[in-house]
Nucleic acid binder design. Structure first.
Lengths: 133, 133
DNA sequence: CCGGATCCTGGCCGATACTG
DNA sequence: CAGTATCGGCCAGGATCCGG
């Protein structure tokens, strides 16, 4: 988030929407939710995660994990063998987030056709408005 | 694009996580959730929304509303008086999204202190690691 | 194997000005 | 009042090299 202090948003949603925006900024990025869901199935090492996701860059995987770790949702465990081994796991706190996130994911899966349909209809309508022969 | 035709992400999350990413891309932006919540209280006209949010630019309000309308979550109603009047409202479909979103928002409000705390702890620990006197 | 550092690009978003 | 158009800054995020 940005620096608060000047942050007056609506007046009545003050704390509520600030909190919501904060968490949405965390998990609303490109990879966080996916990581949370995958880690929800059990601990994984770095390279497993990287292979599991397959579209993510090493950099973003590291950054996203760091962010989640910083907010207490992910636990990072280093085993100083050679070569080194690093495992990531959801904390109990992270698990409490898993529930509402899964809820949202479920909604997404259930209603995807409707969204697609609405989207197509909208685009068709727009095209008609624009293309006036 | 990596593997055209055979888009394999994780193998089993294929459709699920695609759908999730799609919806998160929609509502994970800067203003969508806020708009959904506000519109959840009833229909509002453009200028009311603009005043209600107070930090949003005219441009982003328009764009966000368009996006939500495109996906079938918001209904736009024009009353061709003079000056013109445009009302926005959640569709029934939009209302079904309101529930899981509210769930998430609730989580955010409930757990904000813990996040803050974890964040602080993490930053302190990092500082200790860096600053070796 | 893990992840830090650096460069670079696309797009998001805000500010402003202009139409109907 | 409601919306479009244009410009510009900023940052997320991908590619790559390097170091432990």
């Amino acid at each position: 988030m940005k620096s608060p202090g000047k942050g007056k948003i609506t007046g009545r949603f003050d704390a509520d929407c600030l909190a919501t925006r904060e968490i949405l900024t965390r998990i609303g990025d490109k990879w966080s939710v996916l990581l949370i869901v995958i880690l929800g199935e059990g601990p994984q090492r770095f390279s497993e995660l990287k292979r599991a996701i397959e579209g993510i860059s090493q950099r973003m995987l590291t950054l996203t994990l760091r962010g989640l770790e910083r907010d207490g949702m992910v636990k990072r465990t280093v085993t100083p063998t050679n070569p080194p081994r690093v495992d990531y796991d959801l904390t109990p706190f992270g698990h409490t987030l898993l529930a509402p996130v899964a809820e949202l994911a479920l909604w997404a899966q259930r209603h995807r056709p409707e969204v697609q349909q609405a989207r197509d209809a909208f685009d068709r309508a727009e095209k008609k408005t624009v293309g006036r022969p």
